[in-house]
Design a binder for these strands. Structure first.
Lengths: 208, 208
DNA sequence: TCGATATCTGAATAGTGTTCAGATTATGGG
DNA sequence: CCCATAATCTGAACACTATTCAGATATCGA
């Protein structure tokens, strides 16, 4: 019986073995592929191949493909917040002018993100990644940055007291909506600055 | 050679044959399945089976699965516009009060649609259906209804001349964005009416 | 009635997510 | 240093998917 008990060695090289960081490597590879193919049309096997690992290896870090995609989503939200933080840091100062600029940069960064990487934006807001606590927005950093911006605008007299309470809701919704509508081809790219104009005027003009 | 040249008859019954309307039957079935499974996770074969037809039959009406999904999207946009038209028709009159109610109903209908059928909403704005002419929003009915609403609001003095030019952009973006953020779990459902309040105040308060 | 045409099937191909037994490597305790 | 144990990855299999195409079936016009 020619039983080849011990084969020379398959493909268990150190290249693919013992990534201690296979989890993050998989997410990074997935991001790259989603960027090109879109959140649908993402192949688990392609992700595994990109990292140089067998498809089944993925299941040691994610229960299924959707969980991997959710992991991608989580990372993307962190990345977006990072870009917004960096954008804010470039416009320091306590003047009304600075506050206005920060507010606009916050929106611009959001839109630029969406417009530069439509597929990543779609993954974030297209029902692919499940948000853990429903309606618990208050915790995350991006929301806090917006709140701070609005407080500064109020302090410097740019926006009115009456509109302040609608600040986060109106700003986030408008920027989110315009980004979606532009990315999906329902509105031309140029209108985004126009939206920021309108938003600024609207916020500053509450009665009382 | 037992060659069963002419088998009694397979499954070419009149039930599945000669749908002259297979195209719309497929779209209707697809809508039902997307409602349950989401735009990703839609199976072409499942759609075909639901209609009672073989998978390959689909390819006589759509070049591929994505085209079928695009077809679904087109129908959904028509359906949404129909619901909005019906909502408007229930609030006739030329008074400021009526105009306000129409404006709110337009937004409410949009949101209710999104919130009742998240998966259909995701299909419409998640990059699944390709918009034919990029940035050509002006043509479609929904946009015209919004424009008429805003004109009425201006005529009855509810909104200011200064803000009128931002009307469509700000309203559509805000409603679209809030719907997305609520549907995806980033904001609680209750804030939508609050958004409409803020939007109304903001629109009415432009200087000049 | 017959031929042309629209319509649908069946089978095949290549690719997918997922599972699991087992092979390989790393680790820590003696 | 060595060996048992745990962590990690592979290979093959299964059921499912989209897509193609030759050919079978039904309908319609002359």
């Amino acid at each position: 019986m020619s039983s080849p008990a011990v084969l020379p060695s398959k493909r268990f090289s150190r290249e693919n073995y013992h990534h201690g960081d296979l989890q993050v490597a998989l997410i990074d590879a997935a991001i790259e592929l989603v960027r090109k193919t879109g959140p649908d049309h993402l192949s688990l096997r392609a992700v595994a191949e990109q990292v140089g690992v067998s498809p089944s290896a993925v299941y040691h870090y994610f229960p299924d493909k959707d969980a991997l995609i959710s992991g991608v989503g989580d990372k993307l939200f962190v990345d977006l917040a990072t870009m917004q933080r960096e954008a804010l840091s470039k416009v320091p100062g306590k003047s009304a002018k600075a506050a206005k600029l920060r507010y606009r940069e916050l929106g611009r960064t959001y839109f630029r993100w969406a417009n530069n990487e439509p597929n990543l934006f779609r993954l974030m807001f297209g029902g692919f990644c499940k948000v853990q606590k429903k309606g618990e927005h208050v915790a995350d950093e991006a929301f806090i940055m917006l709140t701070n911006c609005l407080d500064d605008l109020l302090a410097t007299g740019v926006i009115s007291i009456g509109m302040r309470k609608y600040g986060e809701l109106l700003s986030w919704s408008a920027v989110q909506g315009a980004s979606t509508l532009i990315v999906e081809g329902h509105l031309p790219e140029e209108v985004f600055e126009e939206l920021l104009d309108g938003l600024e005027i609207a916020m500053g003009a509450g009665r009382k």
